[in-house]
Design a protein around this nucleic acid. Sequence first.
DNA 1: CTTGAAGCGGAACGATCATTCCGTTAAGGC
DNA 2: GCCTTAACGGAATGATCGTTCCGCTTCAAG
Lengths: 216, 216
Amino acid sequence: MAGHDTQDRPMRRDAVRNQQLVIEAAREVVSEYGTEASMELIASRAGVGVGTVYRRFPNKDALVEEIVDLMVCELVDEARKALTLGDGTGLEVFLRAMGESMSTHRGYAVKAVGHSKATRVEELRDLITELLVQAQDKGRIGPSIVLGDVMAAAWALRGIIETAGPIAPEAWQRHLDIQFAGLRAPDVPSAHAPATREQLTQISGGAGRTSCGRGA
Amino acid sequence: MAGHDTQDRPMRRDAVRNQQLVIEAAREVVSEYGTEASMELIASRAGVGVGTVYRRFPNKDALVEEIVDLMVCELVDEARKALTLGDGTGLEVFLRAMGESMSTHRGYAVKAVGHSKATRVEELRDLITELLVQAQDKGRIGPSIVLGDVMAAAWALRGIIETAGPIAPEAWQRHLDIQFAGLRAPDVPSAHAPATREQLTQISGGAGRTSCGRGA
DNA sequence: CTTGAAGCGGAACGATCATTCCGTTAAGGC
DNA sequence: GCCTTAACGGAATGATCGTTCCGCTTCAAG
């Protein structure tokens, strides 16, 4: 993805730099205005022409998928890091990191959390499952909680962040405090079914491969 | 709004019927496809031409505001009804009703819950406040919970419903079960601030007037 | 330094809407 | 039944935006 195109010949140096500028501009602009921000705006933010954007990305969807993928990769990193805590607080730490990330990338958080076809969501799901198991082992999360509940909490955060956004920037944190009080309870009687694994897969894909580009 | 236009002369019977058809079509179509559904689609669903839509609504925004307003009115009714329960369960009953409504009107729930300029949101806020006070009086909700927390719970529901939608239709109910477990706790330690009244007003307007058209 | 090709900018194209306009239709008061 | 006029349908208009195209520019291999 970085430095080489489809062929063996390395990309020209200016092309590499421009591609980076485009990706950064897209993150900024789409975070702020959502995926409906125009390609023109993204290009001008990057200081290049639209043609340059289309040289690296076949269309807008591909560009958006690229930045969604970056975001999910960062979340995967956070999840891995949280897992090493080992004391059962990892799940909470991760969810807070996810909230921060969704706040920063508000305009397209929906793509990462929801209907994204991005590769790698499955990897993230597995990591979250591990975090959940760890938290339950340490008694920090009730035994009746399942992955679907944690995902629902994440979707909930998006709803709050999208709505309250920068106006009440702590609202999602507080919601999470209260939610965790419920999640900790040894048994929450519920007549309602959480999302199953199959449903989670349906909601946010789980097909592709490739690994997150390591590094900063 | 119904039967009369700006002038004294009553609307023609076919015009009244068509306006109703347009509103119903808009609710259906926008619920399903979101506010980006085209006017053509709404018009054809209603069985009329676009021109007819524009005779009653100056533009698309006005039409959307109309259906948002209908939704909020229904929520106001639900809140009033819940308040008469008097046993402190009203808040929970209301939030479930709100979830159902947002599920039905998924495509524009965001307008009702969030950045809507719809009149009447303030009335709804007042009713929710009453429901909260009542629930706290009866000991069903912890004393440290404020209106901002309830609103955040509503925004959270929207996030879940938009994401999981019809795929995991019970997910939001279960989230609410868990959330209520947290809300019931006598004290949830939180270092984070809930949304204040001012912030709530900023988030979802609160200026206009007029009353909900009574009746079915 | 030369030169071939990758890269670049941005005008042009085509599709998709929201909105307007106008010739035609049909309520409903008399 | 007649006639005025509100109401209707849908083609036309104009704006926006994704995408393509092409003549010019600039890198970098030799």
